[in-house]
Simulated assay, not measured.
Amino acid sequence: MFKTLVFLVIGFTVTDNVLRTIYENFGIIYSGNVWVNWFGVSYLLFFLYTIIRVIFINKNHNLLKKRIASIIFWLLFIGSVYAVFIPFVKGENPF
């Protein structure tokens, strides 16, 4: 539970400081339901954390193996990539 909160806080910080700047540099208005982008960034960070742990640190950890094999894990990854990168395709934040 603690890791979830940490990723949400880091994701909020990255979304508010970094993603806002990137969107505005590409002419995308950073408004609307930006919490969708926030959760997308938070989950992408969680995904990267999990992948790095599996590849480099705990290759044989049972919980990590089950997480990587989970369909929900990958579906959420696809959804988070969509939430973060679709504004570049559409030219606006559709959320």
Rank of each mutant, 00 (worst) to 15 (best):
M1W: 04
M1T: 14
M1E: 05
F2L: 14
K3R: 13
L5K: 12
V6T: 10
F7T: 05
V9A: 15
I10C: 10
G11D: 11
F12E: 06
F12S: 03
F12C: 02
T13E: 13
V14Q: 06
V14D: 05
T15A: 03
D16F: 15
N17V: 15
N17Q: 14
R20W: 03
T21G: 07
I22M: 02
E24K: 10
E24T: 03
N25M: 08
N25V: 07
I28V: 09
I28Y: 04
I29N: 01
I29A: 09
Y30E: 01
S31G: 00
S31M: 06
N33E: 12
W35I: 13
W35M: 13
W35D: 12
N37D: 10
W38A: 07
F39C: 02
G40E: 13
G40M: 10
S42Q: 07
S42N: 06
S42P: 12
Y43L: 11
Y43N: 05
L44E: 03
L44I: 03
L45M: 09
F46Y: 12
F46I: 08
F47R: 02
L48T: 08
L48D: 01
L48A: 09
L48H: 00
L48G: 02
L48Q: 04
T50M: 06
I51F: 10
I51E: 07
I52A: 13
I52T: 10
R53Q: 04
R53H: 05
V54P: 04
I57C: 00
N58W: 04
N58S: 00
K59G: 14
N60R: 09
L63D: 01
R67H: 04
I68R: 04
S70V: 07
I72C: 10
I72D: 14
F73M: 02
W74K: 04
L76W: 12
L76T: 01
F77G: 10
I78D: 05
I78V: 11
G79P: 13
G79M: 15
S80W: 12
V81W: 03
V81F: 03
V81C: 07
Y82F: 15
A83V: 08
A83Y: 05
A83R: 01
I86S: 11
I86C: 05
P87R: 00
P87L: 01
F88H: 07
F88W: 06
V89F: 15
G91C: 02
N93H: 09
F95P: 07
